Amino acid sequence: MNTKEMTDKIAAGQGFIAALDQSGGSTPKALAGYGVSEDEWNGEDEMFAKIHDMRSRVITSPSFASGKVIGAILFEKTMDGEVDGKPTADALKDRGVVPFIKIDQGLADEENGVQLMKPLTKLDALLEKSVAKGMFGTKERSVIKSANPAGIAAIVAQQFEVGNRVIDAGLMPILEPEYDIKAADRAEGEDILKAEILKNLETLADDRQVMLKLSIPVKANLYKELVDHPKVLAVVALSGGYSTEEACAELAKNDGMIASFSRAMLQDLRAQQSDEEFDATLGKAIDSICAASVA
């Protein structure tokens, strides 16, 4: 797939984006959920080898190439690795899956009700490498904890600043100002978030687009204006701690939003499953997430 084909595929939205981008801090928990305990690996290199094995198994599973997964977000070490003897990005594109790369370096301490991204000290080098490896886009995460107007304005401004650097490098940014689904004031805060995103979209040049990855809103179709905005290629939803069933039920209420789920897609996969059991389990999750995305 070339850039135009990948852009068209994401814009059409006939499926969902798989999030396979657990990084160092979240990898042990992801492995434990997969049935791989900490006594089965020793040190960071072995840990990442185990998670790469899991991701490779997902990517090479027949159900992953069913056409219902239209994109996948990778961690840098996954991008640097190989699947089926090919660079991971190429292996994904062979299966009709558009590759993205996670670029943030973790979260800063909470201030004004939000956690901004830590300084992206490796961004320029990572963007250059990502372009060379054939990636289509990037993803950057920060977190909103409460409906603090100053904090939300700061988090959206940072997302767009980094997004413009990504576009300058020739890639498509997914901006992810995640709203904590457990926040008591989320409905109020999501109104503020939407207004700030719309304000920042107006500052984008007319020939620029971004993608947005947002928590499924409390008010159904709150983000429809963003879905329809000419400077937004797609709006994708994170599962945010919901189970697969809960996330799909909530997502189906929102026209035009498609899923970009991680735990909700992988929660029932186990290392101990046979290949047939693994593919059947993954296929069931993929079917339900896709159905909610295109509902």
Rank of each mutant, 00 (worst) to 15 (best):
D8G: 07
A11I: 02
A11Q: 05
F16A: 09
S23K: 14
P28H: 01
L31R: 01
E38L: 06
D39G: 10
E46L: 10
F48L: 10
A49P: 00
H52T: 01
D53M: 14
R55T: 04
S61E: 00
S63I: 02
G67N: 01
V69N: 02
I70Q: 01
G71W: 00
E76Q: 13
T78E: 01
K86F: 03
R95I: 04
V98A: 07
I101E: 09
A108K: 03
E111V: 06
G113M: 00
G113Y: 01
V114E: 04
L123F: 00
A125G: 08
L127H: 00
M135I: 15
R141P: 05
V143P: 13
I144D: 15
K145I: 09
N148M: 04
A150D: 15
G151P: 13
G151L: 12
A154I: 09
A157H: 03
N164L: 11
N164T: 06
V166G: 10
V166H: 08
I167T: 03
I174M: 13
L175S: 08
E176H: 03
P177S: 04
Y179T: 12
D180V: 09
D185T: 06
D185C: 05
E188R: 10
G189H: 12
I192S: 04
L198P: 08
K199N: 14
E202M: 11
E202Q: 12
E202T: 13
L204K: 04
L204N: 03
R208M: 12
L212G: 11
I216R: 03
V218A: 11
V218G: 06
K219Q: 15
N221A: 08
L222C: 05
E225L: 02
P230T: 02
L233M: 07
A237E: 00
S239E: 06
G240D: 04
Y242Q: 15
Y242A: 13
S243V: 04
E246W: 10
A247M: 13
E250V: 10
F261S: 14
L266R: 04
L266Q: 15
L266N: 14
R270C: 09
T281V: 13
L282Y: 07
L282P: 07
A285V: 07
A285F: 10
S288M: 12
A292C: 11
S293T: 11
S293F: 02
S293G: 08
